[in-house]
Nucleic acid binder design. Structure first.
Lengths: 333, 333
DNA sequence: ACGGATGTTGCACTCGCTTGCAAAAAGAGG
DNA sequence: CCTCTTTTTGCAAGCGAGTGCAACATCCGT
């Protein structure tokens, strides 16, 4: 359809009166070219608007410079900020992010990875969904690096970045106790993502540890609207919880808003809330939510670092600790 | 560094006992292959885990399937949702998004476009910043399609998608008047993006049209925190405005929160607010902001459509009308 | 059985680039 | 000035695919 007419190394070579190899070497760091030749090549390249064809280069070098980002619900604040951080770090490492949206189904993560293979991506970073083992094996076998973020299922040869969700949950529990709360609840989505379940599990475990009952309610996706529903369910119980740990900040925002506007409860006086992620909105004055900060930048850094390291068969676990950011949604602090 | 060992068409051919061309044809829609050959090829491909190398294919076809998305502050709600919509539409058109972050400087948009050329992207979509004319010319000359969203400066050969910002601003003004407001203000960022300036201009023009003064205040980036500052400046004036049109929703959120919490003003009783973008947060019950909805999905659709159309030299303007979404931040409605 | 139409297949060239190798040029040392 | 070493340079062979062309096979009608 389109007539793309990019200028090629041959044309630059002709104009500069040198061989095609000379042009190639000029644009290959560390190759042997005399200063004079380089000058003439660069001049010709500039005049013609030449840019090395990375596709062809990747073909030869067997290294495309492309890294595949596999994400669903990428407009969600936490995801968006992670994408941003990763893309920044990738660019610093002279790589470039290919974005693949997997909103449709779970199978589409597999499709995405196949696409990554087709484009000979140097690596894939999975932010959501969990790929089939057969596919990840194919990736690793093909020499493609694989990073799984917050997926928590083992895959040979991959880097798995996870947070200490359970410990964080315990910490939240203790914070609630210090604030004098008596009735504890966990507000979760019902998608069952491992990291969300780990938070739930950790919170319940803390309840058992301290001999306190914990109510668990699950509903919908990890979005604001689910938080609304969760609030309605939790706050209409005969013993109304006065401490709710939300699986993530979006839920917490929906829950807080509903608690305040629909149930006329004061946060933190009548109800303490803790969230997870530390999305930007939690710092807005309508929320001032106490929450656990995902170390987004460090996650991105770690992921990108892994891409440039020699491949190991075993894979690697990387666990990070989320920091508890104290704001106003829990008494005391 | 990494030893990538992808399986090639040659290996598949060998295993299936056919020529390499047969393999190629099997994966080329519309090519002539017998059912039997196709079957054997597909079988061998499956067994070996073969996937066509899109880079090599792109090299031959002179069509990479890559589309470059050039964005800054991509974790901002509006940007994120636009990115999501575009990536979805691209995937439907069997293309794939390369994400380039231009947070650093304005010059980096040019760098990004050069990168796009290097990767022989079929097109580039610019969501932020404005590239040099020389660079866009190079893109168009190279046969690369170019889409500029909300940029509002003319570039030959490109598709320029814009909203009717001025008309929207006028509509906001009228809504304020209907609500009985008496003192009007426009809260803007000071980055001077054309679309933001158009909204300001449209609002001021409406003021002149109706013979009413309009206060304009500009500060910072188009973010929540700037909204806070703008509120502090606007709401401490001797004649306090009771109608504020914000250049975008993030500003509006910051401004509303500050008006309520710091100045103890009731929205919409003491102060009416209108925003722009219709980001998700505006529907949260803490805000219920009346705002103009960017037709994100239609923008994405239009952009992607353009990519598959034959190239014209002239370029094309596409103006869309944002819908006013009535919520609770303006009386009446 | 034969001529012709139709459908498949493989050869070989091409896309734009990198790189090993050997020839040519430049520099060093006597 | 000649020889030996070090750069620099061009040639040509890839990388993994697509495709025009000609050869071949298949099938049909007569």
């Amino acid at each position: 359809m389109s007539q793309k007419i990019f200028v090629s190394a041959k044309e630059v070579a002709d104009r500069a009166g040198v061989s095609r190899s000379a042009v190639s070497r000029t644009f290959t760091p560390g190759a042997s070219v005399s200063a004079e030749t380089r000058r003439r090549v660069l001049e010709a390249a500039e005049a013609l608007g030449y840019h090395v064809n990375h596709l062809a280069r990747g073909l030869m070098r067997n290294e495309s410079g492309l890294v595949c980002l596999i994400v669903s619900e990428m407009d969600t604040p936490y995801r968006a900020s992670l994408i941003r951080a990763i893309s920044r770090h990738l660019q610093n490492a002279s790589k470039i992010a290919m974005l693949i949206n997997t909103d449709r189904s779970d199978r589409s993560v597999d499709e995405a990875l196949k696409l990554a293979i087709s484009y000979r991506a140097d690596a894939s970073i999975v932010l959501s969904g969990m790929p089939e083992k057969s596919i990840t094996d194919l990736c690793v076998k093909s020499g493609q690096r694989l990073v799984l973020i917050n997926r928590d299922e083992e895959r040979a040869g991959a880097l798995m970045i996870n947070l200490r969700d359970q410990e964080a949950a315990r910490q939240a529990f203790i914070a609630f106790q210090r604030a004098g709360c008596r009735s504890f609840a966990f507000a979760n989505s019902d998608v069952g993502t491992p990291s969300l379940m780990a938070r739930e599990e950790g919170f319940c475990a803390a309840g058992r540890e301290f001999g306190v009952d914990v109510i668990v309610e699950r509903f919908g996706a990890t979005r604001y609207q689910s938080g609304v529903v969760l609030a309605q369910r939790l706050l209409t119980r005969e013993v109304r919880p006065d401490a709710i740990f939300c699986a993530n900040d979006l839920l917490a925002c929906g829950l807080m808003d509903t608690a305040r506007h629909q149930f006329k409860l004061a946060v933190p006086d009548d109800l303490c809330v803790v969230g997870f992620d530390d999305i930007e909105q939690t710092s807005w004055s309508s929320y001032q939510l106490t929450t656990f900060a995902q170390p987004v930048d460090r996650i991105a850094e770690e992921a990108v670092l892994w891409l440039s390291q020699p491949m190991t068969d075993s894979g690697r676990f990387c666990r990070m600790t989320p920091d508890l950011v104290w704001r106003e949604s829990v008494r005391g602090g």
